Computed example of a mutant assay.
Amino acid sequence: MNGLPVTDARGNTLVSLRFGTERDLTAPMPLALVVVEVDGRVLLVFDRRRGQWGLPGGTIELGETSHRAAVRELAAETGIVVSGLRFAAVARFVLRDPVRREYAAVYRAGFATEPAVRPRHDEVSAIAWWHPGTRLLRDQGLLDAEIARRVTGSAR
Rank of each mutant, 00 (worst) to 15 (best):
P5M: 07
V6S: 10
A9V: 13
R10Y: 14
T13M: 09
T13A: 11
L14P: 09
V15D: 03
L17T: 02
L17P: 04
R18L: 13
A27N: 12
L31Q: 12
A32G: 08
L33S: 07
V36M: 11
V38C: 14
D39W: 11
D39Q: 14
L44P: 10
V45T: 13
F46M: 08
F46K: 05
R49V: 15
R49N: 08
G51Q: 01
G54T: 10
T59C: 13
T65F: 15
R68E: 15
A69C: 12
R72H: 02
R72I: 08
L74N: 05
A75F: 14
T78A: 01
G79P: 06
S83Y: 14
G84S: 11
G84D: 14
L85T: 03
R86N: 08
R86F: 06
F87T: 08
V90P: 13
A91Y: 06
D97R: 14
P98Q: 04
V99Y: 12
R101E: 12
A105W: 12
Y107R: 07
A109N: 00
A112K: 09
T113D: 03
P115F: 08
P115N: 04
P119T: 00
V124H: 09
A126V: 02
A126G: 05
W129Y: 11
W129E: 00
W129M: 02
G133Y: 14
L136R: 03
L137N: 10
Q140K: 01
Q140S: 07
A148C: 11
